[in-house]
């Protein structure tokens, strides 16, 4: 049976990942649509920059975020003036995992929109639907699988985030110690059995997310 500590860690991990996905999804949705549907100058440069967190070492990203949020930077000072000090809180963990999960979510949103037949959209337009109506009644429902896949894969990435989180949120028991950090800490303190339980929980969560993801994958079998 999982003890109190394990439940606390699992709950926190879940909270952080849900919040990470929640703040990043609207961005990924909008930018994914933009990249799939619009031509604009420097489009490929923008696309490359947005994918950067996927290949950058998480520690480098963590360092950037640390600088941005600390009082060294204008951004951190502005936040401080508003009474916001996110460093070493679970909110910082959600921010960091969101940034790390963003490129994956963007990719799947983009693919979701690209899979929608544009002729269906123009047909709806000629039948008198407004742009917004087309988006709500045609594009979004047809891109549904890609968008859901983006949510699931983003969540899976967020629950496994380690490097950037450690830097901006620390490893504070009960506050910012998520599953990957709990595995690390229990290993270092010689609690192998606990580490094993945490690892088993991670595997279970990751498998669940992957099974869900396989069923949603836009190119997967099923409707097609």
């Amino acid at each position: 049976m999982p003890g109190r500590e394990e439940c606390e860690v699992a709950l926190l991990t879940f909270k952080v990942a849900v919040c990470a996905v929640a703040w990043v999804f609207p961005l990924a949705l909008f930018l994914g649509w933009l990249l799939a549907r619009r031509r604009f100058p420097l489009r490929s440069l923008v696309e490359t920059l947005l994918l950067l967190p996927l290949v950058l070492p998480p520690s480098a990203l963590g360092f950037l975020l640390l600088w941005l949020l600390s009082e060294q930077s204008p951004c951190g000072r502005a936040l401080g003036a508003l009474g916001l000090e996110p460093l070493f809180t679970w909110q910082a963990a959600a921010l960091a995992s969101g940034v790390i999960a963003f490129p994956l979510m963007l990719r799947f949103c983009q693919a979701g929109f690209q899979s929608v037949d544009r002729r269906l959209e123009s047909m709806a337009r000629t039948l008198g639907a407004s742009r917004l109506r087309v988006l709500g009644a045609v594009t979004l429902p047809l891109a549904r699988r890609g968008l859901l896949a983006a949510l699931v894969i983003g969540f899976a990435r967020a629950i496994s985030e380690f490097g950037a989180t450690l830097i901006v949120a620390g490893n504070i028991p009960g506050q910012t110690r998520t599953l990957p950090l709990a595995i690390y800490s229990s290993l270092l303190t010689g609690q192998d059995a606990l580490a094993l339980r945490f690892a088993a929980m991670s595997i279970a969560l990751a498998l669940l997310a992957l099974i869900l993801f396989r069923r949603l994958e836009p190119a997967g079998e099923g409707e097609r």
Partner: peptide
């Protein structure tokens, strides 16, 4: 208190004004 992973991490957290 913000527990960090080494004494050098404490030094860095202070010098970058994270703490």
């Amino acid at each position: 208190l913000v527990p960090l992973q080494t004494v050098r991490a404490v030094w860095s957290a202070v010098t970058v004004l994270a703490c």
